[in-house]
Design a binder for these strands. Structure first.
Lengths: 162, 162
DNA sequence: TTTAAATCCGATAAGATTACTTGGGATTAA
DNA sequence: TTAATCCCAAGTAATCTTATCGGATTTAAA
């Protein structure tokens, strides 16, 4: 598999099939994510997409804000994209205060987890249910496979290829 | 002021002016809320809207679900309105687990606070900033005003009239 | 040099949702 | 009878969602 930035390159079609969504639709999203600095892409044959930075440095909150907008349910409760609302006394509005609690609660989840966490959790669950070999086996397999090419195997990083 | 169910009746126009939104638009919302069992209404001259039950029994989460739909950001993370998503392995999906955390975080705020809490918080803030007389003065005023009609004044309940 | 496998990207569009407006009908107190 | 008030169906305009389409560009390899 081709690589870029030390990360595997995955073609659009592979992702579309794996996620069961139309390739033409996914393409828009991936281009958008690339323009947002989350993905890198390589054109031409054997090209594809890869993360633009380590999965541990991409926070879910960043992604959600980029794709869906502010976390807060209403504009006047948003930290990163505050908007005045039409109500007469925003400063004392109890609803706004509650919605700021909501926005903080959401942020406390989404701004705490990275893509790497997401992958880790997913892999844990797969292993727990015996759908993936345990980590020990995985490492052993990778060591065997990579020893042929490189003297020392690199540490295993969660792979978002598929 | 006319009353129904022991609660003051407020005409649409008064609410629309106080909230600075078009009366024709607010009307739709109020009719919707009445059909949802949150409001009661009285037709004809001197009619209006009132809460259908005590403010302490109307949870914000209920209102939000009724007006805006499920709390969860995505269908497969919803408790009250679960929907299968198109992904191949929902059970082990890390994103779904994170979004379930988000939905729980939202629920922990919205399902904990009632309209009464909202009013209380708002009034507290108004008093703190000296925009309303302190509670002691409020009670004294109400006692004086109601003694003329009723022998014993009822306990003060947050008033959502305006 | 040609070809196949890819990304890139602008244009289009159906359907749903949001945020209203319009117009009229029904009810009720005075 | 009248004025105030709620009830409700329908329409509209803008935006969002969820795509589809057509072609241009790039690149590795035969």
């Amino acid at each position: 598999m081709a690589h870029a930035l030390d990360r595997p390159l995955v073609p659009l079609t592979a992702l579309a099939e794996a996620q069961r969504i139309p390739a033409t639709f996914l393409e828009q999203i991936l281009i958008d994510l690339r323009q947002g600095g989350f993905l890198a892409s390589t054109r031409g044959k054997y090209g594809g997409y890869s993360l633009a930075k380590p999965a541990g440095e991409i926070m879910i909150g960043e992604l959600v804000r980029y794709l869906d907008g502010p976390l807060a349910p209403i504009g006047c409760a948003s930290v990163t994209a505050y908007e005045r609302c039409s109500c007469p006394d925003e400063e004392h509005c109890g609803l706004r205060l509650v919605m700021m609690d909501v926005r903080n609660a959401i942020s406390n989840v989404l701004d705490r987890y990275s893509l790497a966490h997401l992958a880790e959790v997913t892999l844990q669950h797969l292993r727990r249910d015996g759908l993936l070999p345990p980590v020990v086996e995985l490492i052993r397999h990778l060591n065997l496979a990579t020893r042929a090419k490189t003297a020392a195997a690199k540490p295993v990083e969660p792979d978002f290829s598929i």
